[in-house]
Amino acid sequence: MTQRRYARLTLLAAAAVAALMAGCASPSTDVAAPAPTATTSASDLATTTPTPAETPTTAPSSAQTTCPTAFVDAENAKLTQDGLTPRSPGANTDLDALAGATGLRCTWAKPGTDIVVWYGEWPGDLGTWEDVRTRLLADGYTATGDLSVSRPVSEYDSAVSYRGGMLYYVSPSSLIASVRALE
């Protein structure tokens, strides 16, 4: 995806996120995520050894979801079997543009590789979903249902879905089927 398309997605999604934040902010659950840096990369995350203080700590956007419970048990077991371990969420252009600093963010990475799994969820109403969906479709995502879209781009594929007042982001997109809240 070109830098111009990323910039367009960022600007459009930022407007949707601003509207979302204005209508859904709650002082008791909103915690600012660390600011992304231009120098953070998937390989940076993958080569960092986690400590308990580095595990994802962003406040959950739903009372039931935490990083260890974001995916179904079988997927969590597969992540562990594949050598992916929890990491502090770093910069992710798509997720940052969509969710800003709101909601829950989770990252798993395989040490010594650039293999990274991303999960994000944040609150939004059906109107917010329709706005996000329209913008993502205009940016090259493909509708995979009334309440889901995916971007089938090699190495950077992702999916976004909506259910019950929450938007869900996963990368790679194949993990959307393993999101516990979407079962």
Rank of each mutant, 00 (worst) to 15 (best):
D139K: 00
T93A: 14
D114I: 08
R133L: 03
A74E: 02
G145C: 11
V149Q: 06
G124Q: 03
G165Y: 08
D114H: 10
N76E: 09
R105L: 06
N76Q: 09
V117R: 04
L147A: 15
D96V: 01
V149D: 10
T93R: 13
S88F: 03
N92V: 00
W118V: 00
S88E: 12
T142F: 05
G112E: 03
T142M: 09
L136D: 10
W129A: 04
R133A: 01
T102K: 11
D131Q: 05
T128S: 13
R135C: 00
G103Y: 02
I115L: 10
D139V: 01
T134E: 03
P123S: 08
D96E: 13
R163E: 11
D73Q: 00
V132F: 08
L104K: 10
V153R: 15
E121F: 05
D73P: 00
D94T: 12
P111G: 06
W129H: 06
N92D: 11
L84F: 06
G145E: 07
N76V: 03
E75M: 02
I115E: 15
S154D: 15
D131G: 08
P152F: 11
P111F: 07
W122S: 02
A77D: 04
G124C: 02
V149A: 06
Y156W: 14
G83V: 10
I115K: 13
L104V: 02
A99Q: 06
E121D: 10
N92E: 09
P86Y: 11
Y119N: 06
G100W: 02
R151H: 14
L126I: 01
G145M: 08
A77Q: 04
A143R: 07
L104N: 14
D82T: 07
G83L: 11
D139G: 09
R151S: 04
G103W: 01
C106F: 09
E130H: 12
P86K: 06
A159Y: 13
A77K: 04
R163V: 11
G112D: 12
A91R: 14
W108V: 01
G100I: 01
S161L: 14
L147V: 09
Y119D: 09
L137I: 00
S88M: 08
S161I: 02
A138W: 00
D157V: 06
Y141A: 06
L79F: 14
T85G: 13
Y119A: 07
P111D: 07
G112M: 04
A101I: 02
L147Q: 13
R151Q: 10
T85S: 10
K110A: 15
G124K: 02
I115M: 13
G83I: 11
A138Q: 09
D96L: 05
R87C: 00
P111I: 04
A138G: 12
T142W: 06
